[in-house]
Amino acid sequence: MMARAPRPRFEVAGIDSLILRLFDSIEESNMPWMLAATERLRASFGAALIDLVPSYTTLLLHYDLEHISASQARELITQAFADLQPASTAGSRCHSLPTWYDRRVGPELPLLAQRSGLSEAEIIRRHSGHDYQVFAIGFAPGFAFMGLVEEALATPRLSTPRKRIAPGSVGIAERQTAVYPGVSPGGWNLLGRSPAKLFDRNIDGYSLLQPGDRVRFEPIDHAEFIRLGGDDSPLETV
């Protein structure tokens, strides 16, 4: 799709960071622009860039205050977006993530069924019957934000996040889905668990999933989950 280059809105995020808001909603068509903007900003900021964190619709840009002023940062951003061309997504990688969907490791399955009026089996069929795009990596090492989950499964985050979630847990928040790579706190609705390793210092680039990749969840049973090295201990206690 050929769309016009986004004009980012600048939002103050902190003393030395800005949110660049490129889009208002999550669309797969955002991705080529997000990837292109990321690359261009890295090049134009060079050593003045401390970190650049892309997400679905935004980029968090953390610059070095001792290197450049706020106005210089804005100038560099404006330049970076001039004549921006969308990045090519041809040849993006595809992954299949085996997933054991079960109440024992997916305590929100009943909640999703109740909210949607669908059976738990139908929830599982719909969640796994769809290719998702990786929109961003964040929250924890190798944690891939994927979407879009169909409307019927969309569920807001828990009002109080859990303090401890087991590695491999597969969750939904609004129309996003993800797998927790390691033990962490979190507020996503959990449906099941995958034995896949998502972040490892021995993986090239450290993270199995990268923005622009395609992912499909493949339902497996408990025996297969264990055979693939999955840990079925119930760690989700609040």
Binding site: G138, A140, T160
Partner: peptide, 28 residues
Amino acid sequence: VSEGIPLGAVQVPPDGQPIVLLNDRQTI
């Protein structure tokens, strides 16, 4: 929609009680 979190961000979850995010915070 999830977005990048800077150091010291004061986020307010639905329970209305702020959380100041420090050095070991989640990135998004």
